[in-house]
Design a protein around this nucleic acid. Structure first.
Lengths: 204, 204, 204, 204
DNA sequence: GATGAATGAGAGTTCATTCAT
DNA sequence: CATGAATGAACTCTCATTCAT
């Protein structure tokens, strides 16, 4: 049996992401995490102190995943109109490929953002993308292509919730609507609605 | 202490709505529900058999609350363009006034709609509003004000998630964005984005 | 199976006295207490909240046992010389008949009196007997039978430790000395040594 | 990091003395001992096999500390009357300077002398001082300065418990009595009471 | 109809001990 | 000789559920 602290730590974190994402904080079981990580329960306490602390690290980890995407967007896109479309596309791409993420953020929301509020590092994790969008909105106004009184925060909020909402009702709505959320037509129609809504808000 | 079966049943249901909405299924405590209902634990088992069953009834109850709103919309609005705006407005009004609802639906989503799927009565609870919107979209196409290939399900999905999304990230996003979701300007800006997105999707 | 809250509470307390007295706080097992009390582990938490809190109540209970003896002494004896002998006799009698007591007080001593210090009610539990002895010492001085500079606290300390010491080395010393601490001759010889020591300290 | 078997063994023993003395057998933690010894847990098992065995060696070590004092007394003092006073003085001196000792003996007492009883070497560790006192008592009788029926074991027991008792209630009593056990007046008054008690027992 | 005492399975956590490196 | 990762049993505590009253 191979002994490797870093490997075990990582296995536990991955297992915890899966468990917390599937069952939320209250429903998650430390035993299940240990089983999935292929290690003993004691290891979780050795490396992460408590279920609570492990959960906080999972939240921080997931937030960082998205902020990595955002950092890449910030570096590469500056044109105000292009930027907003890109953000919707990238968010969708990320959320489609990272199904754990949406669920974890939703559980955290329902916990009233307890872990986020108590982690100073997370308070400003969205500052860069906010600043980026704010800059784009300002430049759009200066260039005369956006209306004068456009509110950046409204735009950021609409961008994020627009992308999120597609996934956050992933289980109940498709069921009662009897639709396939994964069909490319459905995805692109929804993305277009979000983009158009924001475009309309910004247009002069 | 008065003995009143109906009163006790109702108290338990209200308490359960509060408890499940605040803590989700896994985090909810039967003891807390009994305390809030001002009765003892035995009553919950007498009237509702188990925590699980009580939860299912809570879900059904909440779904019915929204479908009552929907029934009223269906009766009173027929004009295709007006209808969509009305739905957004009514949904927002309902969700603002019924904060427990959003949380319960979100928890249920995260439970992968277990209770909804297992309850035949809920499977068709959204059929009327879907049929109503479908009819409006069809009439809009017939009247030549909507595009020919408009998909009713895309519209229903956008309407519901659009309204929902405003509330479903109620805790994390305002915190990192430092905004007040309750300000009338923010609310109406967001509603307008949703309406415009859908309007744009439908327009010829 | 009879259901009786008061009975169960009392059973748990008695079982806890036994368990804590035999094994100390760290060595005591909640499971053992439940078994001895003939009830379920959950009852202990329902009635006493935690192992810690149960321990504190046990300590308080035991202290009260001794202070009941002291109250009886205070009421019935006033003659300075007689009083001191009576205290030694009564303490011995009590400690012989209440073997749990000595051990619990010793464990508590080794815990550096944590529970005693944190319980305001216990801080003054020995005040009456101290005051009583202090009064006897004072009267003995006034009556000219005790020395002028006799210190009451020295006397109280010698009285209590004198009685206690007989029991507190109950296990190691008899073993290495190969003596029977319960033989009446040994008991009365030891009591006489203590009484004589104190008498000598007080004599003019 | 230097590799030094003897050094590590010694460090572990010292750390164990501290840990067992502070927390008793049940409360002591192998991890804490390793930390204090500046080594890792494996070393403890390599050198001492188990927590249990380490504890037994600690007990033996502490007993030997006192018997060294006793050996020195035995060698240097023979006069019956002087001897008893010297023993009280030396015991006090030792116990004041070796605070761990009192606590360890007390814990061991509460464990009902398990380690002492199971260690043949300890059974006779007090034989020399007992024999010494027995001899002094005999000579005192022969010289006509002690009573004829003086029991040496009573004297040994009184000597040891008399010295011990001052320290064994070190935490609870001073707290409720509000006295300073370290004040020279208090110490010498207490010693005098013990000496006088024994002197009185022995006198013709 | 209503109470709350009692249960037992299982949750999070700790700890002496072992073992690959 | 030394490390610290890993284990598993046992511990404190919780909770949905049952049942005598």
């Amino acid at each position: 049996m191979e002994r490797n602290a870093e490997r075990t730590r990582a296995n536990i974190l991955q297992a915890a992401i899966k468990e917390f994402s599937e069952k939320g904080y209250a429903g998650a079981r430390v035993d299940c995490i240990a089983d999935m990580a292929g290690c003993n329960k004691g290891m979780i306490y050795q490396y992460y102190d408590s279920k609570e602390h492990l959960y906080e690290l999972v939240i921080a980890h997931e937030y960082r995943l998205l902020s990595n995407i955002e950092a890449e967007i910030i570096q590469n896109y500056t044109d105000p109109r292009e930027l907003l479309d890109v953000i919707v596309d990238r968010y969708f791409e990320f959320l489609v490929n990272t199904p754990d993420f949406v669920k974890i953020i939703m559980w955290e929301n329902l916990n009233e953002a307890r872990a986020v509020r108590e982690n100073p590092a997370l308070v400003s994790v969205k500052a860069p993308i906010i600043e980026c969008i704010r800059g784009a909105v300002r430049r759009g106004r200066e260039e005369g292509v956006f209306r004068e009184d456009a509110n950046s925060k409204v735009v950021v909020f609409a961008l994020i919730t627009g992308a999120f909402s597609y996934f956050s009702n992933r289980y109940t709505l498709p069921h009662v609507l009897n639709v396939d959320l994964n069909s490319p037509e459905f995805v692109s129609a929804h993305k277009e609605i979000i983009k158009a809504g924001i475009r309309n808000y910004l247009k002069k």
